[in-house]
Simulated assay, not measured.
Amino acid sequence: MKKVEIFDPAMCCSTGVCGPVVDPDLTRIASAVYSLEKKGFQIDRYNLSNDPSAFVENQKVNQALADGGPDALPLVLVDGEIVKTSEYPSNDELAQWFGTTPSELQEKPRVRVSVEFGK
């Protein structure tokens, strides 16, 4: 089974829905990763803000950052090899790597929000 690792630039969250402008590419990749994880595929994301050790400990990622700086991110590894820099993989690429279809990568995470009124 393939292992995919996505190394994100520093950001406050991986969903793309925080901040003043929603990034559609981040929401797409968040949905794809969620869908793949639910199907039992091995896909990991590392955020430079939250997981700096993952960037330092991986020699290939560390070297890509030394060579290209932060513009190398996002960076994607498949089975330990760099396959993409400076952009997220498309749903077609993810589907090809995992032997699934792009339409299976669009499930949205469901989050429950509770609101309390006056106490």
Rank of each mutant, 00 (worst) to 15 (best):
Met1Lys: 12
Lys2Gly: 05
Lys3Arg: 12
Ile6Val: 14
Phe7Val: 00
Phe7Tyr: 15
Phe7Gln: 06
Asp8Pro: 06
Ala10Lys: 10
Met11Asp: 14
Cys13Asn: 10
Cys13Gln: 07
Ser14Thr: 13
Thr15Asp: 09
Val17Gly: 04
Val17Cys: 07
Cys18Leu: 12
Gly19Lys: 13
Gly19Gln: 05
Val22Pro: 08
Val22Thr: 14
Val22Glu: 11
Pro24Gly: 09
Asp25Tyr: 08
Asp25Trp: 06
Leu26Ser: 15
Leu26Phe: 14
Leu26Trp: 11
Thr27Tyr: 06
Thr27Ala: 11
Ile29Leu: 06
Ala30Leu: 06
Ala30Tyr: 01
Ser31Glu: 15
Ala32Ile: 15
Ala32Phe: 02
Leu36Lys: 01
Glu37Thr: 15
Glu37Tyr: 02
Lys38Phe: 00
Lys38Ala: 02
Lys39Met: 15
Lys39Trp: 12
Gly40Gln: 05
Gly40Phe: 08
Ile43Asn: 02
Ile43Phe: 05
Asp44Glu: 15
Asp44Thr: 00
Asp44Val: 10
Arg45Lys: 15
Tyr46Asp: 09
Asn47Ser: 14
Asn47Asp: 11
Asn47Phe: 11
Asn47Arg: 15
Asn50Trp: 01
Pro52Glu: 15
Pro52Leu: 01
Ser53Glu: 15
Ser53Cys: 07
Phe55Leu: 11
Val56Glu: 12
Glu57Val: 09
Glu57Leu: 13
Glu57Thr: 13
Gln59Ser: 14
Gln59Gly: 07
Val61Asn: 04
Asn62Ala: 13
Asn62Ser: 15
Gln63Thr: 15
Ala64Lys: 07
Leu65Pro: 01
Ala66Ile: 15
Gly68Cys: 10
Gly68Val: 05
Gly69Glu: 13
Pro70Asn: 14
Pro70Tyr: 13
Pro70Asp: 12
Asp71His: 03
Asp71Ile: 09
Ala72Gln: 13
Leu73Cys: 02
Pro74Asp: 10
Leu75Asp: 08
Val78Met: 10
Gly80Leu: 09
Tyr88Ala: 05
Pro89Glu: 02
Ser90Asn: 04
Asn91Met: 07
Asp92Pro: 02
Glu93Asn: 03
Leu94Met: 07
Leu94Tyr: 04
Ala95Trp: 00
Ala95Glu: 01
Ala95Thr: 04
Thr100Lys: 05
Thr101His: 04
Pro102Leu: 03
Glu104Val: 03
Glu104Gly: 03
Glu107His: 06
Arg110Gly: 03
Val111Asp: 01
Arg112Pro: 01
Val113Trp: 03
Val113Phe: 06
Val113Ala: 04
Ser114Arg: 00
Phe117Asn: 08
Phe117Tyr: 02
Gly118Glu: 08
